[in-house]
Simulated scan of single mutants.
Amino acid sequence: MTSESPLPDDIWERFAQDTERSIRESAPKEPSARARMVTERLRQEDEKRQKESGGRKWRKGAAPRQPDGWRTGPAWQETNGRAARKKRVLGGIGVVAAAAVTVFVVNPGMVVSWLPGGSHKKTAAPLPAETARPTGAPGAASGAPTLSRPFAGSPAEQYADGAAGIVVPEAASVGTMSKEQVASALAATKDFLVAANLDPATVRGGRPEAAIALVDPQQGDVVSEMNTALSKPDRNHDPLHFFSRFDPNEVKMVGDVVKTRGRMTFKEGRDGSVAVHADYTFVYPLTKEAEGSREVERTIVRRVVDTEVLDPGRFQVTAGKLTLTSFQVNFANSGCGVYDGFLHPEFGTRSRREPDATGSPVDPYDRSHELDSSGGQCGTATRT
């Protein structure tokens, strides 16, 4: 199989002729016989004048007059070398300038941020999983939330994304429950937390069917309370006790990530059952539903949930379902005092007092203390 040249023969021939001519013209040439004769005559004249002047030396700064010979003056290779280096330097500057212009066109903010006084910063590295209660509140974080970085200025920027932040501990047998039964209880508790607080449909205000389905139907009072709160929410029947929900006509999520941090533990429960304790903080980035809205705020929900998985052979329970034994919750920037079944974040301020706030200001990112089970859900957040 033969391949044809992409260029016609006459073009190749012209290219070869031009190349050969350029080589001949640029090659160093031996000086002609006439040039050598002129050089020799001028040398003899210089010697004659030197003898007539009594052998005086040339005055400082003077030099014999000689024509440029093939061994005098800069060699053609050296001249071409300097020119080539100059071209290469100028070419490199041109490439850098062109690249800078291209980056500026594609992302002007990045270029500006690299200039002195710019704000280009890498986000902090993710935190390792929480395995014990922290000793204090996390430090301050600089910046303010934007549509591209909704967690800027918040410790949550280092939290894990969504369900990845709910780390299930390694299972072990406790009481009368096998390792496999404990593992199942831990997995079911995680599934409930995800369905109640992270499922996109639930967060957008939908009915949390998956979360309700995990609750043991034998626990009729809890299931009934959930259904009543979802259908007819009021002060005494609030679905926010169980689920994180926002009014889709009012706000929308910025992106699809909810930041999550907390820990899960287990121990032997009543009559040899396994009791699971979950303590997690969920951080939701939100903007107004109105078209073109660019303002970003965060709502922070901390939940403490206790569940049990009982032995069906000893208790009247449904295998594989959870028994919910305790609920605690605290909100920051939630529109406290509104009982329509939705969280209502406020926009325009970083630190705010809820309408029904009681007690001292609280840092919603401080996980070093237990939630006050006797206190209300409303409070003054020192930051969001």
Rank of each mutant, 00 (worst) to 15 (best):
M37W: 12
R270H: 09
F266D: 05
D366K: 09
G335A: 03
L230E: 11
P128Q: 06
T176R: 06
M264N: 02
F243V: 03
E180K: 12
V251D: 01
G153D: 01
Q181L: 00
D216A: 01
I300A: 01
H277L: 11
D10H: 15
D247C: 07
V304Q: 11
I212G: 00
P169D: 07
A62W: 15
R43Y: 14
P8A: 04
E225P: 03
L214G: 01
S154W: 00
V276C: 10
E209I: 10
G118R: 04
R350Y: 11
V203M: 05
K29P: 05
P126A: 14
P138F: 04
N249L: 03
A211E: 02
S3G: 12
G292K: 07
K121R: 15
R383H: 08
V223Y: 04
E291R: 06
P312L: 01
H241G: 12
P233T: 07
Q44K: 14
A152K: 04
Y284K: 03
G269R: 08
T189L: 01
E130R: 04
P312G: 01
G262W: 08
D372F: 07
V103T: 13
A35K: 13
E47L: 15
L127H: 01
Q316K: 10
E30H: 02
F266L: 07
R71Q: 12
E295Q: 13
R207G: 07
L240Y: 08
E308Q: 06
V112P: 00
P364D: 03
K29T: 09
G109F: 05
K86Y: 10
G92L: 00
G348S: 13
T19C: 05
V304R: 11
A172M: 00
W58G: 09
V106E: 13
G359E: 02
P31S: 11
S231I: 09
L230C: 04
V203C: 05
V111S: 08
Q77M: 12
K179V: 05
T146V: 01
C378H: 08
K29E: 14
R294N: 06
Q219K: 06
V251R: 09
E13A: 15
G165L: 10
G118V: 04
L214E: 07
E180M: 03
T281Q: 13
Q44W: 13
A100V: 12
E78H: 00
A213T: 08
V338R: 06
W12S: 09
E250K: 14
P67E: 12
D161Q: 11
F242Y: 15
R59P: 15
A163S: 14
H120T: 09
V338M: 03
V95Q: 08
K232I: 14
D356F: 00
T358M: 14
Q158I: 03
D46Y: 08
E30D: 14
A137F: 08
T307E: 00
K321H: 03
G359K: 01
H277Q: 13
G206T: 06
A332C: 14
F327E: 11
F282V: 05
E297R: 12
T39I: 04
T318V: 13
P28V: 09
E268W: 08
V38R: 12
R133F: 05
K121C: 01
M253V: 11
